[in-house]
Design a binder for these strands. Structure first.
Lengths: 182, 182
DNA sequence: CCAGATAGTTACTGACCGGTAACACCGACG
DNA sequence: CGTCGGTGTTACCGGTCAGTAACTATCTGG
């Protein structure tokens, strides 16, 4: 299943076949179909696992800097920047949403939920960190991240996505009113 | 060919077959293959036509507010916001880049070129408009737009993408130093 | 009116892919 | 020892899709 996620992410959910996944995982199609009802089901469960990881990240953030929301926010930025420079294939969720044109695909609900949750957590963090306009700042940080991960696939490593950290700091300083380099 | 672009955009380049395209265009497969070498070729030419349109948009902007870069910048924001609220399927270029996982696909070069050009034009416009940090502002506006168009596919119409205009104005005011609501 | 280019039609190939059926295999547990 | 749940293997079905071939129809220009 970890293999499935990697391959879906690397080649896209529509760009890779079940057989290729099972082969890469050292097994075969039948074994997979004894655990998952269909390819769509496998996709959904992969995304749900990714969702769990995403939720855990927020706990991690809290534990790394307990009671210090400003540090948590900076850690979020750091973490996001690493996401961008690491994955040259962007966000699993967003990519899958693009590939799955049907709006009624079951995966879409998972994606929507994760993205909304992420946005809410970010807004709460911005508020706790004392930003002046937490909702606005959260929207901006979220869209900057989303844009950076997409942009990296169009413009490569040297494009605007490389400057994400700089932009995010600009947001929390000028929009949020956080003192320079606290 | 217009039909092809619409269908590629709507269902994704991998999600629609050439038969469906030709049928929708009121013709058939053979006729298409007499004009385009392959499906990949068709994709590339569709993107190139989109690229031309994108270049024309900048001329339009210039003509709408000749010699008034600030108004041009605001018009760009207006135009971007309309893009977001109109297309619920995001940017043709970015979507195609996500779908085409191969980095050596010919379409990738077109996409990269268009995106880089867009970013450069935006940076020049920001500079002409007298923003304090034109490069930074251009990166931010670009990523906000990219993010908004992607986010709309994950979170729907009511998500952060709905607040794009507000964010863009925040950027040109607080990052660029443009007076409030000029 | 004829020639040549362009477009439509039908049918086909070959490949791939999602999903299933039937059967052999192997380890665990009683 | 037996059987039983999980696994591997092979072959297959049905569908879709990119791309081609061969032929016919239509239009245009001379």
């Amino acid at each position: 299943m970890t293999t499935a996620r990697e391959m879906f992410h690397q080649h896209g959910v529509r760009g890779v076949g079940i057989e290729a996944i099972t082969e890469a995982a050292g097994t075969n199609k039948m074994t997979l179909y004894r655990h998952f009802a269909s390819k769509d089901d496998l996709i959904v469960e992969c995304l749900q696992r990714a969702a769990k990881e995403s939720y855990l990240k927020w706990d991690e953030l809290e534990q790394q800097h307990p009671g210090d929301p400003k540090a948590q926010l900076r850690a979020w930025i750091e973490n996001a920047a690493e996401c961008i420079s690491g994955d040259w294939r962007g966000c699993e969720m967003a990519n899958t949403a693009v590939e799955l044109a049907d709006d009624d695909h079951p995966a879409k609900r998972v994606i929507e939920e994760v993205k909304k949750n992420h946005r809410n957590c970010l807004a709460k963090l911005c508020a706790r960190a004392g930003l002046d306009q937490p909702e606005l700042a959260a929207d901006m940080l979220g869209l900057l991240l989303e844009g950076a991960r997409i942009s990296r696939q169009s413009e490569g490593q040297e494009g605007p996505s490389a400057r994400f950290k700089r932009m995010a700091e600009e947001v929390i300083v000028t929009v949020g009113g956080l003192g320079d380099r606290t």
